[in-house]
Simulated assay, not measured.
Amino acid sequence: MTDANTNYNDAFIKVKKWASHDKECPSLVISEETELIYLAYSTGMGNSDCTPINKLPSLYLKIIEGLYESGELKVSGKEFSLYPGSGFFRKLQYKPSNI
């Protein structure tokens, strides 16, 4: 296996973890207003923030966009805000199409 495949596989595993219900890691979320995808994360002391996925390395962006367009990243759960005054978001959950 080449380094490129290893990097892709590592990135894919990380994206799947972000799209799980693991509360210990960042989460993929989608804005209810703009339908843009973000990586939401804890900033400590009960606070949260998010980064648009277009600010992530291009490999992660390609994986996330591909999974979303193929329907393997599904919107789930209730809407929530990351902090007072922020827009509303919903989590994205990874659900492979072969299941």
Rank of each mutant, 00 (worst) to 15 (best):
G87Y: 03
P26C: 06
L56N: 06
K16C: 06
E79T: 12
Y94W: 06
E72R: 01
A4M: 10
A4E: 08
F80Y: 14
S81Q: 07
A4G: 02
L67D: 03
L82H: 05
W18Q: 14
G85Y: 09
Y41M: 12
Y68T: 01
S81F: 05
F89Y: 15
K91D: 05
E69Q: 13
T43A: 15
L39I: 08
Y41I: 11
K17N: 13
G44K: 15
F88T: 07
N5L: 12
K95F: 04
T6Q: 15
N9H: 07
I99S: 04
E32D: 10
K78R: 11
K55H: 12
M45N: 12
G66H: 03
L59M: 13
G87W: 02
G66S: 10
S58N: 12
S48K: 10
T51A: 15
P52R: 13
L92M: 07
L82A: 02
G77I: 02
S86Q: 05
N5H: 08
L61W: 13
W18F: 11
A11V: 00
N5E: 06
C50V: 05
A40C: 10
Y38P: 01
G71A: 04
K91E: 15
S42N: 15
E65L: 11
I37V: 09
I63C: 02
D10K: 04
T43C: 11
N7G: 07
S31V: 01
D3I: 12
K17I: 13
S70F: 09
F12P: 00
T2F: 14
Y68F: 12
I63A: 03
I13C: 13
S42Y: 09
N5Q: 12
